[in-house]
Computed example of a mutant assay.
Amino acid sequence: MAVKDRDRFSTATRLRVLGEQTAARVYRSQTKRQARRSRLTGRAALLALVLCTLVVALAYPIRQYVSQRAEISDQQREQQQARQRVEQLRDLKARWQDDAYAQQQIRQRLHYVLPGETGFIVIDPDAAKQSRTDQGAADRPWYSNVWDGVDKSDAADQ
C-alpha cells in the first residue's frame, strides 16, 4: 500500500489525473454547448418557419389592402374632378340663362346680326388659297361638295 500511496501522490500521477479531469470537463462543456447549439438551431428553425408562415399568410391581405387603398384614392380623385366639372357646367348654365350672354354667343358663333346691322365675314387668306386648290368646287353639283366635306372630316378624325 505504501507504493500505491506514493503513486497516488506522485506528480506524474497527479498530472495525469488532472489532465483526465480537465479533458472530462472540456468534453462535458463541449457536449453541453453542442446540445445548446442544437436546441438553439431547432428553435431558430422553428422561429424561421413561423415567421415565413406569417409572411406568406399576411402577404396577400396586405397586398389587397394596399391596392384597395390606391383604388380608393383614385376614386376620390375622380369624384373631386367630377364635382369640379359639375360646378363648371352649373356656371355655364347660369351664364346661358343670361339673355345678354346668349345673344353675344349667338352673334359670335352663328354670325347673326340684328335688324339694321350689316354683317361682315373676313376670310382668311390662307383658307382662300386652299379653296382655290379644290378643283372646280363651284363647277360640281352641291352633293359632290357635301360628300367631299364628309370624306375630309372623316379622314381628319383618323
Rank of each mutant, 00 (worst) to 15 (best):
S29M: 13
S73I: 00
V3A: 14
V113I: 12
R140Y: 02
V17P: 01
E71V: 00
R69A: 06
R69P: 00
S38Y: 10
Y65H: 12
R90C: 04
W142Q: 03
G149M: 05
R109C: 05
Q88I: 10
D139T: 01
G42W: 04
S29P: 04
V17E: 15
R28H: 14
Q68P: 02
V56W: 03
S29L: 12
S10M: 11
Q88G: 06
E20M: 08
R37M: 10
V122Q: 08
R8T: 07
S38Q: 12
D74F: 05
Q88Y: 08
R83D: 12
Y60N: 09
E78F: 05
A137M: 01
M1Q: 10
Y112T: 05
R140T: 02
V3D: 12
D148M: 03
Y60P: 02
Q97S: 13
D98N: 09
A57I: 11
R132A: 13
R85T: 06
Y101H: 11
Y27P: 03
T41P: 02
S67L: 07
G116H: 00
V26N: 12
V55W: 10
R39L: 13
Q34I: 11
A2H: 10
V66C: 06
K4G: 02
A35D: 08
R25Y: 06
E78S: 05
V122I: 06
A138S: 10
V146P: 02
K129V: 09
Q81V: 09
V3S: 09
Q97G: 08
L15R: 07
Q76W: 01
K129G: 04
V113E: 04
A138R: 05
K129S: 07
R83P: 03
D74M: 11
L15A: 14
W142G: 03
D98A: 01
V50Q: 11
R37E: 01
P125S: 06
R90V: 14
L92D: 10
A70Y: 04
D154T: 04
L58Q: 11
K32V: 15
D148I: 03
N145C: 06
F9T: 13
R132P: 04
S73M: 01
M1D: 07
W96C: 09
Y112C: 05
R77F: 09
L51I: 11
A100R: 11
V122C: 01
A137P: 03
R83E: 08
A155P: 00
V55A: 14
R14H: 09
K32Q: 13
T53D: 07
A59W: 15
I62W: 05
S144T: 03
Q130K: 14
S131H: 05
A128P: 03
W142P: 00
K93S: 13
K152P: 01
V150L: 12
A70V: 08
A82P: 00
D151T: 03
Y101K: 13
L51R: 15
S67C: 00
L46P: 02
K4I: 00
W96M: 15
Q108A: 09
P61L: 07
Q30T: 09
T11Q: 12
V113N: 05
V86E: 08
R37K: 08
R28I: 11
K129A: 06
V3E: 13
I106G: 03
S10A: 14
A24E: 14
L40H: 00
A82R: 01
A23N: 15
D148G: 01
Q103M: 12
D124V: 04
L51H: 10
D151Y: 04
E87G: 02
Q34W: 06
A94G: 04
